[in-house]
């Protein structure tokens, strides 16, 4: 009896709010048709997909595609590259926006501070294609400004884009150039919440600028930092394949081929759909494990987590 009444109330609430559901409809339809429906297609990783048979009509092959992946010539290379580039990227590009925000926050002149922030966001608005184009031109051994500078200081021109061992540095440093300013926004807004009276009290008590930063400003933004760490680790292995593809050259392939670019090549260039999907699934699984591990660790240390 009570249950029935409850259901009726619930139904009434839904009917009453039909307009809200109508507002949700385009967004929900989109994720069902364009995000969830493709997930159903992941099963081709366990099949031998043929266009004429379709997704469900193709033959089951179990873990064959994965076995092929793990035994392939490229597997150790792409796994190593994915991990080294990802980890180097995380270690170098994560702390900089925090340091930049803390340092710029100390500027007393609001106008200077705002100009600096504006300029620091500019690289974010440059497209990946253009950014990579700039990298290639700047590092050119014959005419690039970076090599001109190296030669000016007595060094020898380096063919940055041709050397596999240079790739990770090119990737990470250009990413730092493009992303540091933009990533710092969130820390600037977190710093706006610092208690001004606390800073004044510390100043009267004789705390130096550096001490005020370390013991007041930094602790205030620690929750923001820990959330950002979890998010960054969650994205660890989803390196932008777009950027890697744009910076790849055949001589540097041994240092630049990552799982995501491999997925793209075997899938859309060689049409091995099932094999490519299996490689992609392997990448997402690694990502998932990293995300859960990172969340558990940060939760233990900072009592903050994504869930």
């Amino acid at each position: 009896m009570k249950q029935k009444k409850f259901n009726k109330k619930r139904l009434h609430k839904i009917l009453n709010n039909w307009e809200l559901y109508l507002m949700l409809l385009p967004a929900v339809l989109y994720i069902i048709l364009f995000v969830y429906k493709p997930m159903y297609g992941i099963q081709i990783a366990f099949r031998d997909f043929q266009f004429k048979d379709g997704i469900t009509g193709s033959r089951w092959v179990g873990f064959d595609q994965f076995r092929r992946l793990f035994n392939s010539y490229w597997f150790p290379i792409i796994l190593k590259n994915t991990l080294t580039i990802s980890i180097l990227n995380l270690l170098l590009s994560f702390p900089l926006p925090i340091i930049f925000a803390l340092a710029a926050n100390e500027l007393r002149n609001e106008k200077v501070k705002r100009t600096l922030q504006t300029v620091s966001y500019a690289p974010h608005f440059i497209s990946m294609v253009v950014m990579c184009g700039m990298v290639v031109m700047f590092t050119s051994p014959s005419s690039g400004i970076i090599n001109k500078a190296i030669e000016f200081f007595g060094g020898e021109a380096i063919a940055f884009m041709q050397k596999p061992e240079m790739f990770k540095w090119v990737f990470v440093l250009s990413g730092i150039w493009q992303g540091t300013g933009w990533s710092s926004i969130i820390y600037f807004s977190a710093l706006a919440a610092v208690d001004k009276s606390l800073l004044e009290a510390a100043e009267i008590d004789g705390a130096s600028r550096l001490q005020r930063i370390l013991y007041i400003n930094l602790p205030t933004i620690v929750p923001t930092i820990s959330i950002q760490i979890v998010l960054a680790v969650g994205r660890l292995m989803s390196l932008g394949q777009e950027k890697v593809l744009l910076l790849q050259t055949s001589p540097n392939l041994n240092g630049s081929e990552i799982i995501a670019t491999y997925v793209y090549k075997v899938g859309l260039e060689q049409y091995s759909y099932s094999f490519s999907t299996a490689a992609g699934l392997f990448n997402s699984l690694c990502n998932c494990i990293l995300l859960i591990t990172a969340n558990t660790i940060t939760k233990k240390i900072t009592k903050q987590g994504l869930w």
């Binding site: 493709p38 159903y40 297609g41 759909y273 999907t277 992609g280």
Partner: peptide, 10 residues
């Protein structure tokens, strides 16, 4: 997400 190929096929 479905990944590159399933999304493309969709």
């Amino acid at each position: 997400s479905g990944g590159l190929i399933p999304t493309y096929l969709n």
